[in-house]
Design a protein around this nucleic acid. Structure first.
Lengths: 147, 147
DNA sequence: TTATGTGCAAATACTTTGCCTTTAC
DNA sequence: GTAAAGGCAAAGTATTTGCACATAA
């Protein structure tokens, strides 16, 4: 049987694979957005209606700690998850619509590293969320990666 | 009677001043750290032991909405507050000690604005937290403001 | 087989709210 | 005097946990 990339990752990390974990992994790998726990639970329930919310919480946390998923808090009090992609990025949140655009910019990364070092710290992580309103004019829907 | 700067701010915003609000304002203006709600409640209780936690919550939220205080979430699930200083800044959190260092850097500010505009957005807010571990060698305790 | 995971419901942590009393202006 | 604020306890929301049963390896 062919394993999905995420399931392969789980094996490599020595995580026991159960039907529920497979479902949750699948939900996240198919997600194009940043679902919160209840949303993951809803989507998982459509695949297996007997899955429990506690299992979803436990699994998401486990996967977060294994760096298979990333957890975000965008200020509404709920944890949101996404696949930990190899592509590091940040989020721009449209404050009116809640739409989230991902972006990355090496200049930011380098600058933050430098700032931390000036404060005698090694940078081990950072969180950067932008909040914005659309400028009038042409909208573009594409994601923006400044390589 | 002489008003504290924060209390003056409250007046300007048309907020009715009560004994409890005065105490909470005082606690925050004396704070050198980023206390969570319960910590504010503890400190306020030392001044007036009859103050209630609900009032602390209500007041902190009110003051946050009036931009008299700023609320932060540093990932431990609690809201933390500080005086909304005229000096915009971000936070570097020492992940081992929880110590928080404030910093500011115009290059970051300009860069974020530019990135948002490239994404057809006007930047209306942003959150930037760095997580780090101390580099070996001299530690400095001063706050860092890169004007 | 047996350590590990799951489901369920109860517990916890943080925060908000209803309602009646108190207070600022 | 009256609209607004406070105190208290109950309710809400997000998340975790204890325990008996189920299951992957």
């Amino acid at each position: 049987m062919k394993l999905s990339p995420l399931e392969k990752l789980c094996r490599e990390k020595g995580l026991r694979m159960t039907e529920q974990r497979r479902i949750i992994v699948r939900v996240l790998s198919e997600a194009q957005d940043h679902p919160d726990v209840d949303e993951v639970y809803q989507r998982a329930s459509k695949i297996d209606s007997k899955i429990s919310l506690a299992t979803v919480y436990r699994t998401l946390r486990l996967f977060e700690e294994a760096h298979i998923l990333e957890r975000h808090e965008f200020g509404d009090g709920r944890s949101r998850y996404e696949e930990a992609s190899c592509q590091h990025h940040h989020h721009l949140i449209h404050i009116q619509t809640g739409q989230i655009i991902e972006f990355n910019d090496d200049r930011v990364e380098n600058l933050l590293k430098e700032i931390a070092e000036n404060l005698d710290c090694q940078l081990v992580g950072h969180r950067l969320d932008l909040y914005g309103v659309p400028l009038k004019g042409i909208k573009r829907k594409v994601e923006y990666y400044d390589a």
